[in-house]
Structure formats: structure tokens, C-alpha cells
């Protein structure tokens, strides 16, 4: 797929999303103006360190936030999700947008059987009878690669391994053939060997069902094999986005480059893994300008004081860094 450029009418279109959390010390911004498009059947990865606002963005789409969306619009197809009533939104959740969470261990209800938890979605959204729902749930369990599915369906979550539980979560999320699947760090809590299996499963399901996937991860390594497009988030803003190829070959933002440098590369012998100095600033202590400037090697005059917009680099590839501002960039800046 070309995928580099968002299609004309994206499936999901987030514009200017801002989310605030109320704390003792006043309101703290977690997401500070995110624009993101996902096309039909497209796989987009949202990458960033923990606390950068990527999960918050995903939860905003589902409208399952504890914080408050203070500005922005989220369009799903032709519907503005923000303007829906709660019952209308419930008809979207689980039916049109499925979600897989980070912690399979705690994301399933411990006192209900697995079958029951899947059937629940089917009877709710597809109005299946309970026996039809049961049969369908077993089908789904088979589809996500759970052996002896009939027996498993009547088991409780504690009787399954972590990888199996995540498969159940996936079965539940795709049960109504959603147009969009949000996978929030689906492999972080799992063993490395299981991680690959789960990502393969997600990939094949995406192909089969033709659904769009928003993959949220902090692991650029996962992204390379799976996503078509990548958006890199830092401190509540998207700092760079583009096709996977562009990001990996021509990363433009110093933060993206630092992330890539921190990635172990088996082909590069004697590679020195580079840690990014410092840490993500606390949301309530953000500078007026670029949030990365305290950790950036290339800081120059405008960085601390002025907020960089996304400057285009190539078609479908842009980065929020003044190094790429044709009006300001110093000529001697190294650019890959």
C-alpha cells in the first residue's frame, strides 16, 4: 500500500484535540492540540514515551476519559463523536470502534467466563440470541488462535495465560467487525515471544477484516513491521508524522532521531545505544516553546519561547521543529 498520504475522506479525523486533567495544582494539559487522520483500512502507529498523551488521545476517541476534552473535534466517518449523546456513543463503542488494552491480566472481568464476556458484545450490538452468540464467540476464539475454543469459552480469565487473555481481548474487540481497532500498547505486558505472535495476529486480522488500526506503542521496533504511517508524540503534541519509510530513513525531528538511536539494531555492529538525556517534562512545567528543547542537542533562539508548528518536509511527512522552518533554520544544521 502507498499509505503515505491520508486518503481524501479519512475514517477518523482528529483536529486540535486538547485534554486537561484537574489536579490539586490546577488544570494540567495532557494533550495539547493533536491533529491526526486515519484512513479506511489504514494502520497508523502513535509512538511516544509513557506520559506523552498517546493513551489519552486514544481514550478521547472512545470518550472514556477521566479528564476533560477542552477543545478540538474528533470525526469518525461523517459523525462528530463529541456531539453524540451517551447512548449514541455506546452504539459506536465495541461495534464500530474496538479497543484492546495494555494489561490483559486485569482487563478481563475475573468473575465472568470468557465466553460470556465475548457474547455480551454480540448480544448487545448484533442482537444475537444467546445460543448464536455462544457459537459466534467460539468461532472468534478459534479465529484468534485459541486451541480447544469450546472448552476455553467456559473458563474464567485466571485459567488462561497472559498471551491467551490478550487474544481473548482481541476476539472481543473484533467481534462486531469494527471499522477501527485501537490497540493501546497491546504487547507491552507480554513476553517477547508472545509479543510477535500477537502483532502477527493483529496484522492478519487487519488484512482479513479490512479495518483501520490505531496502534499505540512506545516501541518503534514494533512499528516498523506493522504500521503504514507513524505519528510521534512528545509532551502532548505530535512532533513528527509520516510514512514508516520516511520516519525510519529520514527522521526529521531531533526527538524521533533520538528514539531511533535508542533502538537496538542487530545489523549495526558495535552500535552504541543512545539514551535520551533528561526526561519528559511534567505537564505543569512545560516551556512556552518546544517541549523537547531542554533535552535537544540543536536548541537555538526560537526553541524555548515559540511553539513550532508542523513544517512540511516531503509529501505526507512533516515535523514540528524549527530546524525545518525555511524562514528560521540555520544553514549549518545537520540534516539526515
Amino acid at each position: 500500500m502507498s499509505g503515505a498520504e491520508p486518503q481524501a475522506t479519512p475514517l477518523l479525523s482528529i483536529r486540535g484535540l486538547r485534554v486537561d486533567f484537574a489536579t490539586d495544582a490546577g488544570s494540567v494539559p495532557a494533550v495539547r492540540g493533536v491533529d491526526l487522520d486515519i484512513g479506511i483500512s489504514e494502520t497508523v502507529a502513535l509512538v511516544g514515551e509513557s506520559g506523552c498523551g498517546k493513551s489519552v488521545t486514544a481514550m478521547s476517541v472512545m470518550r472514556l476519559l477521566t479528564g476533560r476534552i477542552s477543545a478540538g473535534s474528533i470525526r469518525f466517518g461523517n459523525t462528530e463523536l463529541q456531539s453524540l449523546s451517551e447512548p449514541e456513543m455506546r452504539r459506536i463503542r465495541g461495534a464500530q470502534i474496538g479497543m484492546v488494552f495494555q494489561e490483559p491480566m486485569t482487563s478481563l472481568n475475573p468473575v465472568l467466563t470468557i465466553g460470556k464476556q465475548i457474547e455480551e458484545v454480540l448480544t448487545l450490538h448484533q442482537r444475537l440470541t444467546s445460543s448464536a452468540a455462544r457459537a459466534h464467540a467460539v468461532e472468534l476464539l478459534k479465529r484468534v488462535g485459541i486451541p480447544s475454543a469450546e472448552r476455553r469459552a467456559s473458563q474464567y480469565p485466571h485459567e488462561l495465560s497472559g498471551g491467551m487473555k490478550q487474544r481473548v481481548m482481541i476476539a472481543m474487540a473484533i467481534s462486531c467487525r469494527p471499522k477501527l481497532l485501537i490497540a493501546d500498547e497491546p504487547t507491552t505486558a507480554l513476553d517477547v515471544t508472545i509479543q510477535a505472535q500477537i502483532m502477527d495476529l493483529l496484522g492478519s486480522l487487519q488484512q482479513e477484516l479490512g479495518m483501520a488500526v490505531l496502534l499505540i506503542t512506545h516501541d518503534l521496533g514494533v512499528v516498523a513491521h506493522f504500521a503504514e504511517r507513524v505519528a510521534v508524540m512528545y509532551a502532548g503534541k505530535i512532533v513528527e508524522q509520516g510514512a514508516v519509510r520516511d520516519i525510519f530513513k529520514r527522521a526529521a525531528h531531533p526527538y524521533t532521531r533520538a528514539l531511533l538511536a535508542a533502538l537496538p539494531d542487530p545489523l549495526r555492529t558495535a552500535a552504541r545505544l543512545e539514551a535520551i538525556p533528561g526526561r519528559v517534562p511534567l505537564p505543569r512545567m512545560l516551556p512556552a516553546g518546544c517541549a523537547f528543547c531542554a533535552r535537544c542537542k540543536h536548541v537555538f533562539e526560537p526553541c524555548p519561547g515559540v511553539l513550532p508548528e508542523l513544517f512540511p518536509i516531503a509529501p505526507g511527512h512533516s515535523a514540528a521543529c524549527f530546524l525545518h522552518d525555511p524562514r528560521r533554520a540555520p544553514s549549518n544544521v545537520p540534516c539526515q
Binding site: 531542554a294 524555548p304 515559540v306
Partner: peptide, 25 residues
């Protein structure tokens, strides 16, 4: 520019990456 940058900011940032927003509380 809305917020004036601290003089010598650039030099400092190069030397002390932990300074500024990343300061430890």
C-alpha cells in the same frame, strides 16, 4: 516571541541537559 529566552540559554542547554523543564523536583 512571547517569552524572552534566558540569555545564554543555548550554551547552558548544551551543557546541562537536565536543566530547565526537566528539572528534578
Amino acid at each position: 516571541m512571547t517569552v524572552p529566552a534566558t540569555p545564554g540559554r543555548r550554551a547552558e542547554a548544551g551543557v546541562l541537559p537536565l536543566d530547565g523543564a526537566g528539572v528534578l523536583v
